Simulated scan of single mutants.
Amino acid sequence: MTEYSDAIAQFDAAIAVAKGDEAYAALQALVQATVGAKLFTVMIVDMDKELSSRAYTSHPVDYPTSGTKPLNYGPWFDIVHKQRAYFVANTIEDIAKVLFDHELINALGCQSIVNMPVIIGDQFIGTVNMLDVEGHFTPERVQMIRDVISVPAKLAMLAAQRG
């Protein structure tokens, strides 16, 4: 048994009955129990319309789920969308290079981030975004996200769509 077996079992039980946002809440609980994140959001992408929308947030006042925004083409887009790679930054200075809302992120006590692309059926459907204090996303934590969070993230997105 691994140190995160209980967290996976709890996610499994929660996702089995989840509807809509409950699926994202189950994923957030799994993230909290394994790698930790002060701020957790899920973005959905419509590549045909070139729009993204926040589907779930742990901070609804600061990062509401309403509305859409046009895709922001640039270095972050190239990494996460085109290369389908994780974007990892462990300082607010590195975050500021690619995210316009870096001041709000910093004000929330977050100076590190992992944006995990979610790919299903060879389609980029969104990102799971985890933020925490400076230096939080060590190589070991990023590997845990790959090993423990990536498949449940796909499941949560599918379950939420079935809502």
Rank of each mutant, 00 (worst) to 15 (best):
D48W: 03
D6Q: 13
T34G: 06
F40Y: 09
I15N: 02
A153T: 03
V133K: 07
G67S: 11
I79P: 04
V142T: 04
A156P: 06
F137L: 06
G74A: 01
A29V: 01
P75M: 06
A156C: 05
S58Q: 03
A85E: 13
K69V: 03
F87S: 03
S53R: 15
K19G: 12
E140G: 09
V61N: 03
I149W: 10
P70R: 15
R162Q: 15
H59I: 00
Q28F: 09
Q83F: 00
M47F: 07
D122W: 03
F40C: 00
L71S: 00
N115P: 09
H81Q: 12
G20D: 10
D132S: 09
A13D: 14
P60L: 00
T34N: 08
N106Q: 14
A9P: 01
N72F: 12
N115R: 11
E103I: 10
H81F: 07
P60R: 08
T65C: 13
A96T: 07
D6W: 07
R162V: 11
I8K: 14
L108Q: 13
A33F: 04
D94N: 09
I92H: 08
K69I: 06
V31F: 04
A23M: 15
A85W: 08
D94F: 02
A23P: 14
G126D: 04
I15V: 15
T34M: 13
Y4I: 07
A156K: 12
S66E: 15
E134F: 01
K82H: 07
V142M: 05
A107E: 06
V118C: 01
D62H: 10
V98A: 05
I125F: 03
Q111N: 15
T57Y: 00
R84H: 09
P152Q: 12
A159G: 09
V151N: 00
K69C: 04
N129S: 12
Y73Q: 10
F11L: 01
